[in-house]
């Protein structure tokens, strides 16, 4: 690729968007209480692409659902721009593991849904939707219904739907590509990086895939096995788009794998 290497616009004094302080969380299952998060602390500055990496069941998805306002921590505080999250809101946009598109709306209408809910005027919605669909490379599919799109295209529409929300302080991604086959997953990751380079946003991306985290993130928050907390943080300063086969990536993968194994042992 001929594109110039780009890194996150990082200022040491970047404003903090998300602040998780001493979150403890447990849920009541039929077998009794089960602890999901314990002493979970995390701060996310503006413009950062953060990956939350952890094994299944470590509570990383719980954290994302809390950010989305779909569930609430039992203890501790979780703030977006200093304000407590009281429910789902248009200051956060989300991409799910399934594309979760509305089957009765076209790709363009799906992407514009949130903007319409936010009270945007029709012409502005159309302009923004066109722009975002262009970024994810789906301008030609604007008028298609979800059933007419491939699995990968559906996910790109879902990403565009989140990206369209200019007023969203943070974009939340809950293992969006984990159900996609490896070849298409790599393509979607490239699309995501290109989208992020075209229009950098604060992103919280939950994944259990180490390579994916290294490929995407400015910073990786590695979670301990259940009950989850952030056990280690790793900054990835490699320029984007990254070369999956580079020695630096391999070294990072080794380092992170070692860290996760050690956490596993101690748990």
């Amino acid at each position: 690729m001929g594109a110039s290497a780009a890194t996150a616009p990082r200022e040491t004094s970047a404003r903090i968007v998300i602040q998780a302080h001493e979150i403890n969380h447990a849920y009541e299952a039929s077998t009794g209480w089960s602890t999901a998060l314990a002493h979970f602390n995390l701060e996310i500055p503006e413009g950062e692409f953060l990956c939350v990496l952890g094994p299944s069941g470590c509570g990383k998805s719980s954290f994302l659902r809390m950010l989305a306002g779909l569930m609430f921590p039992l203890e501790g505080s979780l703030l977006v721009h200093g304000e407590k999250i009281i429910g789902p809101g248009l200051d956060r946009a989300i991409v799910f593991q399934e594309a979760a598109l509305f089957p009765w709306l076209t790709a363009a209408q799906n992407v514009g849904f949130g903007l319409e809910m936010a009270g945007w005027k029709k012409p502005q919605v159309r302009e923004r939707v066109e722009h975002v669909l262009d970024i994810v490379g789906l301008s030609a599919a604007a008028g298609k219904f979800p059933y007419q799109l491939s699995g990968g295209m559906k996910h790109r529409v879902a990403i565009a739907r989140a990206w369209a929300m200019t007023d969203a302080a943070v974009l939340l991604m809950d293992e969006p590509f984990s159900a996609i086959d490896a070849i298409n997953r790599a393509g979607l990751q490239e699309h995501l990086v290109r989208t992020w380079l075209a229009e950098p946003r604060t992103v919280v991306y939950v994944t259990h895939d180490i390579e994916e985290a290294i490929y995407l993130a400015d910073r990786i928050a590695i979670m301990t096995p259940s009950p989850g907390r952030v056990g280690a943080e790793i900054r990835i300063d490699l320029p984007r788009p990254r070369d999956r086969n580079s020695a630096a990536m391999a070294a990072l993968k080794e380092e992170i794998t070692a860290k996760m194994n050690e956490m596993e042992r101690r748990a």
Partner: peptide, 29 residues
């Protein structure tokens, strides 16, 4: 209705009557 559709609608700002009219009704068609 697939629960994730409802969750997505809520996350993208649909509530109350709007949620019923724009999401629950077409999803039940």
């Amino acid at each position: 209705i697939n629960p994730v559709i409802i969750v997505a609608a809520r996350c993208y700002g649909a509530r109350g009557f709007t949620l019923v009219w724009r999401v629950i009704l077409p999803a039940s068609i």
